[in-house]
Every structure is written in structure tokens, then in C-alpha cells.
Design a binder for these strands. Structure first.
Length: 221
DNA sequence: CCCCAGGCGTCCA
DNA sequence: TGGACGCATGGG
């Protein structure tokens, strides 16, 4: 029953917005870097930071690993939290080197890989799952603030629902399908950017407007 | 001036 | 376990 609603939401968003073509990055490594830089940050700011790295030919694991942390921080400055994120990138690069590079990760089972990613300082559930899905094509659903907001708004999860709990809803509803997970999550972000899923009165023409639970006014937060 | 953005680690009860 | 807080730039 919950699964039915989940599929309904995908149907509507897909019909309204069409293919999103995610992730906005050209290589798996660029996806990884973007996933870390975009933590609680507008993507437009991340683009500037990535452009800085690209411009200098540093957007490869080998080259980036040789950039000192303080220099790296200045380069990614537009992405905000630059001191923290510079360290996070370095921690990830160290981990990646230990693992033998992105290619070697193909041999590691998804669950094991996820646990390993989560052991890196600065990589939490969403960042790990973004890397797994968008850089490595693993069937892992990414739960972000937009997704949580939409599900809460439609009364599909409570305020206390955990990341894992919400993730299970999708695993149970639409099965392990990387292409579908990819598109679906991108659609959630697309919807979340719309005014109707921020604070304030509900807007007209929202794809989920006439779905059960659509409120007249958003809840705070 | 305000609020917000594709989180996470730390600290503390 | 879970809530508060710091981290920081850029756009509306």
C-alpha cells in the first residue's frame, strides 16, 4: 500500500518533469568529488569549485591527492565549509588509493563497500549512497532532505523516521534498480527545488497536488 | 536584512 | 539514540 503510493509518486514526477539526466558530472571521480562538495550546499556553488579544479587539470585522484589541504581549501572555497571539505576530500582520496582506485571497487560487494565508505571521515549515509549509485551504478536509493520533506509532507513517514527506515521503503516498493533509483531521486530533488515544497502555502500545479495527504500549508522545517 | 542550500562530526544528556 | 551546534559561500 505504501509501495503503491511510492510508485504513484514516481509516475507523476516522471510524467511532469521527464528524464533528469543525473548525476551532473562527467566522470565517476567527478561524481565523487561533487557528492562531497554538495553537502548542505547549493549545486551552483559546487560547480564553481569543480570548475576551479578542472581548470587546473586537478580533477583526477592522482593529481588531487598531491594538492596540499590548505591549497585545496582555497580552490574549493566557493563550495562553502571549504576547510572541512578539503579534509574530507583528502580522507576520501587516501581511502581510494588504499582500495586501489575506482576500478578496483567494482569487485567489492555493495554492502561491504558502503560500510567501507562510511568509515571515511566526512562521508555519511547520503554521500556514501550518492557515490554508490551515481558513480558506481549500485542499486542504492539516496535519501536527502528533499526526499524526507516530501515523504513527511504526505504523511508517509513520521518525524522520527531514520535514514535507513526511509531507504527501506524504496527498496521494498520499487526493488533494486539502479536506473530507476537514479531517476527517482533526481526527480525528488527537482520537485524539492519547486516553491511548493518549501515553507509556505502550497502552490498550484504541483505534480503531487491531488495525492492523499497534500496539505494546504507546509510544516515548518 | 532575512532564509536557504542535494550533510556531517562532535558534544552532551 | 537523538538533539543542538559549528562549519561558510552565494543566490533569492
Amino acid at each position: 500500500m505504501l509501495g503503491q503510493t511510492v510508485r504513484e509518486i514516481h509516475e507523476r514526477l516522471s510524467g511532469a518533469y521527464g528524464p533528469q539526466g543525473w548525476w551532473p558530472g562527467q566522470t565517476p571521480f567527478e561524481v565523487c568529488v561533487g557528492a562531497i562538495l554538495t553537502q548542505n550546499t547549493a549545486w551552483s556553488n559546487v560547480e564553481k569549485a569543480i570548475a576551479n579544479l578542472k581548470q587546473r587539470g586537478l580533477l583526477s585522484p592522482e593529481r588531487l591527492a598531491h594538492v596540499p589541504v590548505d591549497e585545496l581549501a582555497l580552490l574549493i572555497r566557493p563550495a562553502g565549509y571549504f576547510n572541512q571539505k578539503a579534509r574530507k576530500l583528502h580522507a576520501f582520496l587516501l581511502w581510494l588509493t588504499e582500495k586501489g582506485g575506482l576500478g578496483a571497487l567494482a569487485e567489492v560487494p555493495t554492502e561491504e563497500l558502503r560500510e567501507s565508505l562510511l568509515s571515511v571521515k566526512g562521508i555519511g549515509p547520503e554521500t556514501a549512497d550518492s557515490i554508490l549509485l551515481y558513480a558506481l551504478g549500485r542499486p542504492v536509493f539516496v535519501i536527502d532532505a528533499y526526499t524526507v520533506r516530501v515523504l513527511r509532507r504526505h504523511g508517509m513517514v513520521g518525524d522520527d523516521a531514520s535514514y535507513c527506515e526511509i531507504q527501506e521503503i524504496f527498496a521494498d516498493s520499487i526493488g533494486p534498480d539502479p536506473a530507476l533509483f537514479n531517476e527517482f531521486h533526481a526527480l525528488f530533488v527537482r520537485l524539492g527545488k519547486e516553491r511548493c515544497h518549501r515553507r509556505g502555502p502550497a502552490c498550484e500545479g504541483c505534480p503531487l497536488e491531488d495525492l492523499p495527504g497534500y496539505p494546504a500549508v507546509n510544516e515548518p522545517g
